[in-house]
Computed example of a mutant assay.
Amino acid sequence: MIMAKLKLGTIPDDKPVKLTVELPAAIHRDLVAYGNALGRETGQGAVEPAKLIGPMLARFMATDRAFAKLRRVGSAAPRPQPASPGSEKTT
């Protein structure tokens, strides 16, 4: 059997945020297959599909050059400062 290097590694045990999504059945089947392959590669045992989605999205966003550029540009832009009490100008 040929063992390919998967893009995801061990899935960290992190506190999740509940999110409900609907996926096409084909994507769910692929997630199940990916979870099985990842489990074999990392020795974790099968990884359930719901635990794959977060790391996959994180990996996708981390490797999206256009998104990284937008984040850099957006973080460099000055952010409006909230007005402090009594700083309003009256004319």
Rank of each mutant, 00 (worst) to 15 (best):
A76L: 09
I53C: 05
Q81F: 06
K51D: 01
L19A: 07
D64F: 03
A33S: 13
S84C: 06
A76W: 00
K5A: 04
P82S: 08
K5H: 11
R72K: 13
K51N: 01
A50C: 10
A25E: 10
I27C: 10
L57R: 07
L57G: 03
G86A: 02
K7V: 09
L23T: 05
M61I: 10
I11E: 00
E41D: 14
G74I: 04
A37H: 04
P12S: 05
H28C: 12
T63E: 15
R79V: 04
V47N: 00
A62N: 09
L6Q: 03
A66I: 08
E88A: 13
R40I: 06
Q44R: 12
R40N: 06
G35V: 02
T91H: 07
D14E: 12
M56E: 01
P12L: 09
K51I: 00
R72Y: 03
D30F: 00
A4S: 14
D30C: 07
A46W: 00
V47W: 02
T10W: 14
L38T: 00
A76M: 09
K15Q: 11
E41V: 08
L57S: 04
R71D: 00
V32Q: 04
K89A: 14
R59L: 14
M61E: 05
R29P: 02
K18A: 14
P49Q: 04
F67A: 13
M56L: 15
A77Y: 12
K69V: 10
A37P: 02
R72Q: 08
R71Q: 08
L19K: 14
A33K: 15
G35R: 03
A50V: 07
V17G: 02
S75D: 06
L8D: 01
P24A: 09
M3E: 12
I2D: 05
F67R: 15
G35C: 05
K18D: 10
L19P: 00
R71T: 02
T63G: 14
A37R: 12
L19C: 07
P12N: 05
A37C: 08
P80Q: 13
F67D: 05
K69L: 12
T91F: 10
T20P: 12
L31N: 00
A77M: 15
P78N: 09
D14R: 15
P55A: 00
T42S: 06
G86C: 07
K7H: 14
R72M: 07
E48G: 09
L70W: 11
P16A: 09
K15E: 07
A62C: 06
D13C: 15
L70T: 04
G43E: 03
R71H: 03
L57N: 02
A77S: 13
E22K: 15
A66P: 03
A83W: 08
P82M: 05
M3C: 11
K7S: 12
K15R: 15
H28N: 13
L6D: 00
P49S: 03
D14A: 15
I11G: 01
E22V: 15
R72C: 04
R72V: 05
T63C: 10
V73E: 10
A4H: 10
G74C: 07
A76E: 11
A37E: 05
K18V: 13
L38F: 04
P85G: 10
D14L: 14
L38M: 06
P24V: 04
K51Y: 07
E41H: 12
M3I: 10
T63H: 11
T20V: 13
I2L: 12
A25D: 11
A62W: 05
V32F: 01
